[in-house]
C-alpha cells in the first residue's frame, strides 16, 4: 500500500462542475486529478479534485476568477 500524504481535496455540488474544473485545470496545466469523493468530506458518491495542498491559495483565487462553483475544500491524508 502506498504511503498517505496530505492532499487538497475540492468537492462539487454537481458532476458538471467537476468536469468544468477538470477542463479548466487541464487547459492551464494545473496539477491534480478527479477522484471518488473521500468519506471524510461526506459519505456517498460523487467526484472530487485532488491536488497538492500548497496550491490552495492560488487554486482558490483562480477558481473564483473563472467562476467555477465548488462546494467544499479540505486538506486530507490520502494515499499518494
Amino acid at each position: 500500500m502506498r504511503q498517505k500524504k496530505p492532499y487538497l481535496v475540492v468537492t462539487f455540488a454537481a458532476t458538471a462542475d467537476a468536469m468544468a474544473m477538470e477542463r479548466y485545470c487541464m487547459e492551464r496545466n494545473l496539477p491534480g486529478r478527479l477522484i471518488p469523493i473521500p468519506r471524510e468530506i461526506h459519505a456517498g458518491c460523487g467526484l472530487a479534485w485532488k491536488t497538492q495542498p500548497e496550491e490552495k491559495e492560488a487554486f482558490t483565487a483562480s477558481l473564483e476568477e473563472a467562476g467555477i462553483r465548488w462546494e467544499a475544500m479540505a486538506v486530507l491524508e490520502l494515499w499518494g
Binding site: 462539487f12 455540488a13 454537481a14 458532476t15 458538471a16 462542475d17 461526506h42 459519505a43 456517498g44 458518491c45 460523487g46 467526484l47 462553483r69
Partner: peptide, 14 residues
C-alpha cells in the same frame, strides 16, 4: 452525488 440526501440535488443539471 449526495446519495444519502432524501431530495434531488438542487443544482443544474443534476
Amino acid at each position: 452525488i449526495h446519495s444519502y440526501s432524501k431530495v434531488q440535488p438542487p443544482e443544474y443539471p443534476t
